[in-house]
Amino acid sequence: MKIHLTSVFVDDQAKAEHFYTEILGFVKKHDVPVGEEDRWLTVVSPDEPGGTELLLEPAGHPAARTYRDTLVQDGIPLAQFAVDDVQAEYERLRGLGVRFTQEPLEMGDVTTAVFDDTCGNLIQIATEPQ
């Protein structure tokens, strides 16, 4: 068994597409209309075009709002992405106006930081332990 797709709920798919591709640097993999307004919208890492897809899923379900608002209030990220250098990525994203709720924090052999994806979620970036 492999993890080939995972998802985050987003407030607005067009805004999410912009943030996840233009700001974070992922590339769009699938974009298929579903129903009247929704899309099956996935992105992948440019480093791994055949890797795990991230589904940017409409947060239409009433439970999604409560779930996400409660997590965001406590600063809990919904997903984690690996980067080579958290500090460098922090500075790059900050330069693009991204809001961080946790600045780079070195904890043993792992460094993490947490930012707002502008679509209702917090995302953690982390260095992979060598």
Binding site: D74, Q102, G108
Partner: peptide
């Protein structure tokens, strides 16, 4: 060491550090 932490950050520091 750093003021202005979310609950998540406080938890991370206690667990990881």
């Amino acid at each position: 060491e750093k003021s202005g932490q979310t609950l998540f950050e406080v938890c991370s520091r206690l667990a990881m550090k």
